[in-house]
Design a protein around this nucleic acid. Structure first.
Lengths: 212, 212
DNA sequence: CCGCGCATGTGAAATTTTTAACATGAGCTG
DNA sequence: CAGCTCATGTTAAAAATTTCACATGCGCGG
């Protein structure tokens, strides 16, 4: 386990490995080889061993990987072996859907506070969380130990939301708004935008058509 | 403009360029240099010129890129300068949200049909679309010129949904189910799963912490 | 209408990432 | 307990991608 720069692509694949491993675990499989796992994830088996090697030695030679153990190890490596407190800015349709989405807490991300600047929304209670005025964010985020910010505002207000969140002390942002954000270099931002996948599928369909 | 294999990463970036360019257009900006665009997208300016070069020459030397024109060119390159008819399988919470989601048609993807295997859901009408039994898919997809399949079933039924869609003749799939799919090599699949972004942000936050 | 400035498009260099190859070590068998 | 099998962990090679550097060519000003 050497401390080297870890490729962004590796992080993405680790998430896939976890997904596939959890699916295997549901099927009561206990051990898997890098070769088998590779097939299920549509990647090369060396790739898997390489990716895992960034974080340690998790397998048993001649045997493979114990699935439960590997899931735990990957989650620890990614830092998702604990709960992350989150704050959400922008309580529109999307924001409300996120607050109600069961899979988010299931993955260890708990929305502890929600903010908006629309007076009509302030005071609403969704899933036990009261929507607060954005001006209170600086007081609330530290007191609730919030480390991650979710942005679900319209694109034109995303930057403002980001500024508020960072000012309030969040350490990373996941934004669902279709807008790029300018943030300090030490604040990671993840852009969630499934329209990119729509574009991609259209492109690859055309590409297949041109092959044939 | 040479016909070379186009990196997957390039496709992802093109989608980002479109997003940023459309934002600039909203601000009435008419021309942009690769350098300016690069900054807004947090990439290298050579990268942008390289990415665009796969598809043609869209800029004017000494001037830059005409934004409206570039948007059109990129969209044509990606194949999103037209409408794509889609069919959705799995009308649970997520499926219904997708059917109501305005941004999907806005991007040129129109859901023309919806399928489920739960009798309680068959017959429901959502956004003018009647939910049909999955057994009818093979008749409906060709008759409505559907080319793209959306999967929003639980993970354990995603593969079955994919099989039905492909059998019915869709050319590509966008799946929202947290499961990997086995499909013929000529059918592109895009996996939409924002939990990957949650994992990523957690990892990068930890990484920042270890730096300091 | 010539020359200058500027930003593109591109070929080559540098870097990163992926794939292949193999030595290592765990576990099983006789 | 020696030897054999198998799959990992790792080193080296190959491939792909990103970045650099600059020649090309458009537009403007004198």
């Amino acid at each position: 386990m050497k401390s080297k720069r870890i490729p962004k692509a590796t992080i993405g694949r680790l998430a896939v490995y976890v997904q596939v491993l959890e699916s295997l675990r549901r099927d009561r499989v206990e051990v898997v080889s890098s070769e088998k796992l590779a097939q299920a994830c549509s990647v090369n088996s060396s790739q898997i061993r390489k990716d895992l090697a960034y974080f340690g030695e998790f397998g048993v030679r001649g045997v493979g990987y114990y699935i439960q153990e590997l899931i735990t190890s990957i989650k620890r490596s990614l830092g998702i072996d604990r709960v992350w407190n989150c704050a959400l800015v922008g309580v529109g349709n999307l924001g409300r859907a996120l607050m109600k989405h069961r899979d988010i807490p299931r993955k260890g991300f708990v929305i502890k506070a929600a903010f908006d600047c629309d007076p009509d929304r302030i005071g609403l209670v969704i899933k036990g969380i009261e929507v607060m005025c954005l001006s209170r964010i600086k007081e609330v985020v530290p007191s609730l130990d919030v480390e991650v910010g979710f942005i679900s505002t319209p694109p034109e207000r995303a930057q403002r939301a980001a500024n508020f969140l960072i000012e309030a002390g969040v350490r990373g942002i996941v934004t669902f708004a279709p807008a790029r954000l300018e943030v300090p270099a030490n604040i990671p931002v993840e852009y969630v935008d499934f329209s990119h996948h729509l574009y991609a599928v259209a492109f690859y369909i055309n590409q297949e058509a041109n092959k044939a």
